[in-house]
């Protein structure tokens, strides 16, 4: 379980992280979403005991990061967004080194390393030099490295960044396996549909502040203040445009004439939506279909992070 209270990181007058409060239950997968520079890596670095917070506190499985950072390190497996590997070190030696760094004896390491390489599909690369592996293989190896001491909590900072589609799918499969193993996983990514698929809860961070937190659906509802409504018409567009323009909850009307559709943004509730449809039929508008367009999480993310940075 991860508990974060009032975590803040300030550089001069700039807030990299502002009063972050969050609880991630044991055995769940939490996705951290935000544009570049939103504060995801800052949060992860603090939780990994690499960065000192300006104020606030966090606990990993009840252990304080400020009071017992050494104990916290034993609890977490950390994978940074950018990392290097040692030259002239073979894959199994790489894992062996980190295993020894966590105090595992030679016998334990000898048993664990083949299993981990198997988990990340790198068994056939056991005797290859790590610096010669592909980006995707290095990412998987780094994940295996983070698992060497069997941590209860995994902190994965954009583990799929820079990977080709195939490598992303492979990474996703591994993360699913880890989730099934009962690990508490804190993961950040720009690939929102992927996060939505594997995460139990999501947190959206923008300019150092957590602006939404909850299940994927609740976030979508909370953040999406305006829905896109499509109305398929058989008659005059001009009359329909005039009619919808008069409704204060409607904005940005677009005509898609080739499909006979009128699209607009709507701020009202479902009841308001129903009332609008009823009114349109009452005034004799030739409505063939009236529906809400489905927007995916990517659209929501683009909407809420407008101007916050580039993806």
């Amino acid at each position: 379980m991860i508990e974060i209270k009032g975590l803040t990181k300030k550089y001069g007058s700039f807030y990299a992280l502002k009063d972050l409060n969050l609880t991630i239950e044991e055995g769940t997968v939490f996705g951290f979403v935000g544009a570049n520079g939103a504060g995801k890596s800052t949060t992860f670095s603090i939780l990994a005991t690499l960065l000192q917070p300006t104020s606030g506190e966090a606990w990993i499985n009840g252990i304080s990061i400020s009071q017992s950072p050494h104990e916290v390190r034993k609890q977490i497996g950390y994978m940074p967004d950018f990392f290097g590997v040692y030259d002239q070190l073979k894959t199994d030696e790489y894992l062996d080194f980190y295993g020894a760094s966590y105090g595992l004896d030679a016998q334990q390491r000898a048993v664990l390393i083949p299993k981990l390489l198997d988990l990340v599909n790198l068994s056939n690369k056991r005797n290859d030099y790590v610096d010669l592996l592909s980006r995707g293989m290095k990412q998987r190896l780094c994940l295996a490295r983070a698992l060497i001491h069997d941590p209860k909590v995994l902190i994965l900072d954009e583990p799929a960044s820079g990977l080709d589609p195939r490598a992303r799918v492979e990474m996703r499969e591994i993360l699913r396996e880890l989730k099934a193993m009962g690990k508490t996983i804190l993961i950040s990514s720009h690939i929102l549909p992927e996060l939505a698929e594997m995460c139990d809860t999501l947190g959206v961070i923008d300019s150092g502040e957590l602006i939404a937190h909850g299940s994927v659906q609740s976030i979508q509802e909370k953040l999406q203040s305006e829905k896109v409504i499509s109305v398929k018409l058989t008659g005059s567009f001009a009359d329909a445009v005039r009619f919808f323009e008069n409704d204060p909850l409607v904005s940005q009307i677009t005509e898609i004439r080739e499909r006979g559709i009128l699209q607009f943004l709507y701020k009202g509730t479902e009841e308001d939506q129903l009332a609008l449809l009823r009114k349109a039929i009452t005034v004799g508008m030739p409505v063939l279909a009236f529906s809400e367009e489905e927007t995916d999480l990517e659209d929501v993310f683009m909407e809420i992070t407008k101007g916050a940075g580039t993806l």
Partner: peptide, 9 residues
């Protein structure tokens, strides 16, 4: 490689 090394035990 330092950050990873510093998060070990």
């Amino acid at each position: 490689t330092l950050n990873i090394l510093l998060t070990t035990a």
